[in-house]
């Protein structure tokens, strides 16, 4: 559905996007992940025919963005970073205007506007001036605008920015719902968002694609082995932590053992495994074999956040130290996203 080959985009001497290639199959949700200034927005602007590529080909539904931009525009719904809203228009009037310039047939216009408003939960403000709407509503009107003409491809630049936690969850649900009938690319710097909404991730940094894979594979690939957290109790006398560590390290497949916490008479260890080892059964057997009590064992998966930092940092640490600032910023944003989750569930 989306086919990007060797795309480069230069502004004067500055290369914003450098020779990136990726493909998106119909109906998939792809997350575009990268630090600020990585080239996410530029790439999206090329996909929507807002900017022409400097080099390379971009095809959407088989149509080239340079040769047949009209065909591409008909098939793409786009939500830019700042929703393109006219503050002096009412929500409904604005959507009707968008429908008209997006070639929605007159007979269907009312129906489409109604549906888009319903889908994005803006029915209650349909008559309000956009200038008077809160940031969350504006974002959703922007989303309604993007999917109004029922495009095959949806391109969403940071669709959840500025929303409160409840709205973020609703928007993510909506996006997941839209996948299947639409092919979706969304950019974000909130990592949990990618983990929760997307099926595939394209991580870009400094204008280059540094990783492309499914969320699952990417996590595993970078992970190599797995890690487990074990909580061990000792019936009678407690051996020293070092003794226990040595024993655990002897378990089949364990490669690195770190004492995490001492809780009363119990010890918490984080055990990492060598790649492709079956760590947990061996660990359990070792513990029980020594006559200790296994209170808890849980698998620690790498979060995409760590993967992201690993990828963006490892790639550039030697060459450009200044860049480290950028991922650090994104870590904050990610942490922020994390914090909002429990609030919602509570």
């Amino acid at each position: 559905m989306i086919d990007v080959q060797n795309l480069s985009k230069r502004y004067g001497g500055f290369t914003a996007v450098d020779d990136i290639s990726f493909r998106v199959e119909p109906g998939r949700i792809v997350g575009f992940l990268g630090p600020n200034g990585a080239g996410k927005t530029t790439t999206m602007r090329v996909l929507t025919c807002f900017l022409p590529p400097s080099r390379g080909t971009v095809k959407i539904a088989g149509f080239d963005v340079l040769e047949t931009p009209m065909e591409v525009k008909r098939r793409v719904g786009y939500l830019p970073e700042t929703p393109p809203l006219y503050p002096d228009m009412a929500v409904e009037g604005y959507l009707r205007f968008v429908g008209e310039i997006k070639e929605v047939p007159k007979a269907e216009l009312e129906d489409r506007v109604e549906r888009a408003m319903k889908r994005c939960a803006v029915l209650d403000v349909r008559g309000k001036l956009i200038a008077k709407l809160s940031k969350g509503y504006r974002q959703r009107v922007g989303l309604a605008q993007a999917l109004l003409h029922d495009p095959e491809v949806l391109i969403l630049d940071e669709p959840t920015s500025g929303l409160d936690p409840k709205q973020i969850l609703e928007t993510r649900d909506l996006i997941r719902e839209l996948a299947g009938e639409h092919t979706i690319i969304l950019s974000t710097h909130i990592l949990p968002e990618v983990e929760q909404t997307c099926e595939e991730v394209v991580i870009i940094n400094k204008g280059k694609v540094v990783a492309t894979d499914s969320v699952e594979n990417l996590r595993n690939r970078l992970r190599g082995g797995e890690a487990a957290l074990v909580e061990i109790g000792f019936g009678g006398q407690t051996p020293t932590a070092d003794t226990v560590r040595a024993v655990l390290a002897g378990a089949h497949g364990a490669s690195n053992v770190v004492l995490r916490e001492q809780r009363g008479g119990r010890l918490l260890f984080e055990v990492e495994s060598a790649p492709n080892a079956n760590l947990r059964p061996a660990l359990a057997a070792t513990i029980v074999g020594n006559g200790w009590e296994l209170y808890e064992m849980k698998s620690l998966a790498y979060s995409l956040e760590e993967v992201f930092l690993q990828v963006t940092r490892g790639d550039s640490a030697e060459t450009d130290e200044a860049l480290l600032e950028a991922p650090a910023e994104d870590l904050d944003a990610g942490a922020e996203g994390d914090n909002t989750e429990p609030e919602v569930q509570a």
Partner: peptide, 12 residues
């Protein structure tokens, strides 16, 4: 306001 982005990415 950035609305030019809407116009330039619409089939007009």
């Amino acid at each position: 306001s950035g609305t030019i982005e809407l116009l330039l990415t619409s089939p007009i």
